[in-house]
């Protein structure tokens, strides 16, 4: 005898509700019970949930109907979404695979000096450059060079694409308050959504073997800071300087290229730094959906309880993180220095 029976008869709805049928899907509680939990003896008054109401009235939905509905809706939309999104995102797979091939195919004795040279060029800092060289050699010594390069290639591609899209979006937002108002909630959503949740709809849309699956997940997650800080940086540019630019008759384009972007550069660089760090965080999680790299070893550590493998890979990730952070921060301070504030 279900608790809410009386309620429905009191409302004279027994007729409408009909008799219970057994073909209904399992309730969420039954699902949990099936999974091995014991039958929970509910409180005196059960919470008026779909499932509890359904027990008294057959017409009421079950919660499983909701999840099924979402699933079916998604599946129904899938063909359309897929025909649109698949071709658009296909280049991402090519780029990711291409970069992966390039990073792996380049022999280490070219790659390592190249990375060290890039670090020097970006940071112009001797300690940072030496740190980079030592870290890479450390990774190489424990035979993690290849996986580290895979991770690096993914970060490289995803960061580049994030910047390529994020900076123009940020610029557009800084120009229009309306656009800013509508985009900011979306960015908040992207940043607060647990990282695993990104993967769920993506897995439905694309096959797990395609690289663009993890590429999109990483980019969606990592593009947020570069958009935010580009917008902020441009909005923070000294209004007097903008006024001077106007007073001397600069066009919008001149203003953007000669004044706004250069003066916003420290903020944009800070955004890029965060974008790099966030792609690194996501690339590890993305190894769940076949992203190669250090994350795969971490995953193996967890799955097979291979403690050592997991920890070494973890340390490798930390090293990569520190390298990327130091180099981009050093580049940032270098930019900052030429713009000493008055």
């Amino acid at each position: 005898m279900a608790f809410y029976d009386k309620l429905f008869s009191a409302l004279g709805l027994s007729e409408w509700c009909g008799t219970p049928d057994d073909k209904a899907p399992l309730s969420l509680a039954d699902l949990a019970a099936q999974a091995g939990g014991e039958e929970a003896s509910g409180p005196l008054i059960p919470i008026p949930s779909f499932d509890n109401l359904h027990e008294s009235c057959n017409r009421i939905w079950q919660s499983r109907d909701v999840t099924n509905g979402i699933e079916e809706g998604f599946l129904a939309a899938k063909p359309v979404l897929k025909t649109v999104l698949d071709p658009i995102t296909q280049p991402l797979s090519w780029i990711l695979d291409g970069a992966l091939w390039l990073f792996e195919a380049t022999p280490w004795f070219i790659m390592v000096p190249l990375l060290v040279a890039i670090s020097w060029y970006a940071s112009r800092s001797r300690p940072v450059t030496i740190f980079v060289a030592v870290s890479i050699m450390l990774l190489a010594v424990v035979d993690h060079y290849d996986v580290a390069m895979q991770t690096l290639s993914i970060i490289f591609v995803c960061t580049t694409i994030s910047v390529l899209f994020g900076v123009p979006i940020g610029i557009a937002m800084s120009k229009s308050d309306r656009l800013q108002k509508s985009v900011v909630p979306l960015l908040d959503l992207l940043q607060t959504l647990p990282t695993f949740v990104y993967l769920i709809p993506l897995i439905f849309l694309f096959s797990v073997t395609e690289s663009k699956l993890y590429g999109i997940a990483i980019i969606l997650y990592a593009i947020v800071p570069v958009i935010r800080l580009t917008d902020l940086g441009i909005r923070l540019v000294d209004r007097d300087v903008i006024e001077a630019a106007n007073a001397f008759g600069m066009t919008d384009r001149q203003k953007l290229l000669r004044v706004q972007l250069p003066l916003a550069l420290p903020n944009i660089m800070a955004g890029i730094n965060q974008t790099i760090m966030m792609s690194l965080a996501m690339v590890v999680i993305a190894s769940l959906v076949s992203a190669p790299g250090l994350g795969v070893n971490v995953l193996r550590g967890i799955r097979n309880l291979e403690l050592g493998v997991g920890i070494v890979a973890g340390i490798g990730i930390v090293l990569l993180a520190v390298i990327l952070d130091r180099v981009s921060k050093a580049a940032l301070t270098r930019v900052d220095k030429t713009q000493v504030k008055h």
């Binding site: 000294d238 007097d240 300087v241 006024e243 001077a244 106007n246 007073a247 001397f248 008759g249 000669r258 004044v259 250069p262 003066l263 030429t338 713009q339 000493v340 504030k341 008055h342």
Partner: peptide, 17 residues
């Protein structure tokens, strides 16, 4: 603005970079 009038500002408003 380019050819007829130029302006000098209280806070200088130079391009710092």
């Amino acid at each position: 603005r380019q050819e007829k009038m130029s302006m000098v500002f209280q806070k200088f408003a130079l391009l710092p970079h």
